[in-house]
Amino acid sequence: MVKKALLTYALAAGVLIGPMGTAGWAAEGRAQADARPVGVVETRAPLNVREKPTVYSDVVKKLHPHERVLLSCQKRGGWVDGNPVWYRLHGSKGWVSARYVHNLQPVRPC
């Protein structure tokens, strides 16, 4: 009877803590916090990456159609085909119009 009770408690603790222990949960939380939303360029021609979130800003580089990019955050800027949202690219100083980039995950505001 005691062995059965100990086995039950051990199994319950394993379910509560999980197979990786509590350190696994912390590591998983950090990985999710470090993960950046991904976007896909939805154009037929190269997409201009702008210095600021407006079409009047200088072009700093171009992205290819169907290219996957990491997005840092989103912000309202100049309107492009009825869409005022712009995405800041992760790892570069540049903005792309959300009109031409499909976000695969939610993007936090800047």
Score class of each variant (00 low, 15 high):
1 M>D: 08
3 K>S: 15
3 K>Q: 14
5 A>T: 10
6 L>H: 11
6 L>G: 02
8 T>N: 10
8 T>G: 14
8 T>H: 10
9 Y>P: 02
9 Y>V: 11
10 A>L: 15
10 A>E: 12
11 L>T: 06
12 A>G: 10
14 G>Q: 10
14 G>A: 11
15 V>G: 11
15 V>S: 11
17 I>Q: 07
17 I>N: 07
17 I>S: 05
18 G>E: 13
18 G>P: 06
19 P>M: 08
20 M>E: 13
21 G>E: 01
23 A>W: 15
25 W>L: 02
28 E>P: 03
31 A>L: 12
32 Q>N: 10
32 Q>V: 06
33 A>C: 04
33 A>P: 02
34 D>N: 06
34 D>V: 00
34 D>G: 03
35 A>L: 01
36 R>N: 10
37 P>C: 07
41 V>G: 02
41 V>Q: 03
41 V>E: 03
42 E>K: 08
45 A>P: 00
45 A>I: 04
46 P>Q: 09
48 N>T: 03
49 V>A: 01
49 V>D: 10
49 V>P: 04
50 R>K: 14
52 K>I: 11
53 P>L: 02
57 S>F: 07
58 D>S: 11
62 K>W: 14
69 V>M: 02
69 V>Y: 00
71 L>E: 02
72 S>I: 04
72 S>G: 06
73 C>L: 05
73 C>T: 04
75 K>I: 04
76 R>F: 07
77 G>L: 00
77 G>A: 05
80 V>A: 02
82 G>H: 02
83 N>V: 11
84 P>C: 06
84 P>S: 08
85 V>Q: 03
85 V>I: 15
86 W>R: 00
87 Y>A: 01
87 Y>C: 05
88 R>E: 15
90 H>M: 07
91 G>P: 00
93 K>H: 13
93 K>V: 15
94 G>V: 04
94 G>L: 01
95 W>H: 05
96 V>I: 09
99 R>H: 13
102 H>L: 12
108 R>D: 11
108 R>A: 14
108 R>H: 07
109 P>Q: 12
110 C>Q: 04
